[in-house]
Amino acid sequence: MRRLKGVNRKAFLIESHLDGLRRGESLDGAVPEDGAESVDELPRDVVGLRSSPGDPQIPLGCTLIFSPGWETDSTGSTAGLCQPVERDLFDCHLGCFWPAQVPDQLNHAPDWTSRCAAAEKDWRNIDLIFP
């Protein structure tokens, strides 16, 4: 900390945590080189304060962990998933910023939701897209 001076106990905890990160315990495993003092060279992990050094880095985003519908079940189909696959389509379509999660409605599947006027009633009409 070059420009801020910690005053209370919580500030000291943050300082010592950041020192730990700088000594090479950063979340992404990046060890700064000796003398890497400039702002451009140091690891810029703004979520660093949330986890203690050494925690595994958990990928964030909907498909990898929280939306099992995008995967297949043990037989390679979608019938045995714990949630209907359609629930997941709308999960991504409405709640997620990731553009590749929904079919390309401009080019490949322009009519994907044409039979779905109101999602809460008609979501069953949205079919899967097969390439």
């Binding site: 900390m1 420009r3 801020l4 400039s38 451009d40 140091l42 703004v46 660093g48």
Partner: peptide
């Protein structure tokens, strides 16, 4: 420039400031 960058870095690390829209 170095003063400002170091200041920005300290403030970002302590989360007093952050990338816009975060």
């Amino acid at each position: 420039e170095e003063d400002v960058k170091n200041g920005v870095y300290d403030l970002m690390e302590t989360r007093a400031i952050g990338p816009a829209g975060a």
